[in-house]
Amino acid sequence: MRQRHASQDARRAREFKAFVAGAAGRLLHAATLLTAEAPDDNPRARRLLTLALAHTYACWDGLRGEDPYDRTRQYLASRFARGAWHQYGGLGGHRPHPASPLAALAPQERLVLVLRLYEGVAEEQTAALLGLATERVRTICDRATATLLHPPRGPAPAVGGAKVAAS
């Protein structure tokens, strides 16, 4: 009996290790995009990924044919949304790092954009995961995409040396 449990535990550990080897890089990149940290300085993203992977490992035997990547991504996204909401009173909080490609976006916009465009999650699935209407997800994604493609302009530069003639 003990040997059978040891064998099952070893198999579980091997399967999970193989999953992490294949998925951790992409999931860390998604977490870094969500937290809007610099790619080489991303402690919040690493913590988010660690929590998501720990959750997946805890549920590993109960997945029963479910895709572990999907499960981990769902937990990562919901943990980001819930953590930002509880910690900061809204999907906000820390200032995005200027090196982040999504620094100009609000946290909810980053979340929707990462799920829809980076991860390829369907609108309906994204809406269900976040508890939003499908139309709201579409609007948020469109607004975030427009912000990235056409960033707001800064103030117009002052024209030096121009004098207005007084009459």
Rank of each mutant, 00 (worst) to 15 (best):
L148F: 03
L51C: 07
P155K: 15
E37L: 10
R11A: 02
A144R: 09
R82Q: 12
R153C: 13
T145S: 09
P43Y: 11
A38W: 07
V20K: 09
D41R: 15
D67H: 14
A24E: 06
P98Y: 13
Q125M: 03
L132H: 09
W85M: 05
L102H: 04
E109Y: 03
L113A: 00
G120E: 00
R2H: 15
L105E: 04
G90I: 10
T126P: 09
E119M: 08
A24Y: 07
G65N: 03
Y57E: 12
V114Q: 11
D67R: 12
A30E: 07
A36Q: 02
W60T: 09
L34W: 08
H86P: 06
D41H: 13
L132R: 00
T56S: 01
R2K: 15
Y75N: 03
P101S: 03
R14Q: 15
P101Q: 00
F16Y: 14
P96C: 04
L33A: 12
L129E: 03
E135S: 11
Q87C: 08
Y118V: 09
T56N: 01
H55C: 12
H150N: 10
H94T: 14
R116T: 00
L115S: 10
F16S: 11
T145C: 01
V164L: 12
R2A: 14
H94A: 15
A10E: 10
R82V: 13
L130N: 00
Y75A: 05
R2Q: 15
T56A: 11
K163A: 00
P157D: 09
G154M: 13
P101H: 00
P107V: 01
R73P: 04
R79G: 04
L113Y: 04
H86R: 12
H29G: 06
T35P: 01
L148H: 03
D9R: 06
G22E: 01
A127Q: 03
Y75Q: 06
E109R: 05
H97P: 05
L63F: 15
V137C: 04
Y118G: 10
D142N: 00
N42G: 01
A23V: 09
H86N: 07
A52K: 02
H94N: 14
E109L: 02
A81L: 14
Q87E: 06
H97R: 07
H55L: 14
H86C: 13
L117P: 03
L115T: 06
L148Y: 00
R79V: 02
L76T: 04
S100P: 07
L91D: 02
A54D: 07
A18Y: 12
V20W: 03
Y57M: 04
A162E: 14
Y57W: 00
D142T: 08
F16I: 13
R138P: 06
H150V: 00
A6L: 13
K17S: 15
A122R: 08
V164G: 02
V164T: 05
E123S: 09
H5G: 07
A81Q: 14
D40C: 11
E123M: 13
V114N: 11
R4V: 15
R143L: 08
A31K: 03
P68Y: 14
R138Y: 05
E124K: 01
L63I: 12
A58D: 07
A104T: 09
T72G: 12
G65E: 10
A156I: 11
P152Y: 14
A133T: 02
A133Y: 02
R2Y: 15
P68V: 12
R64K: 14
E37R: 09
A128M: 11
A23P: 02
A128Q: 00
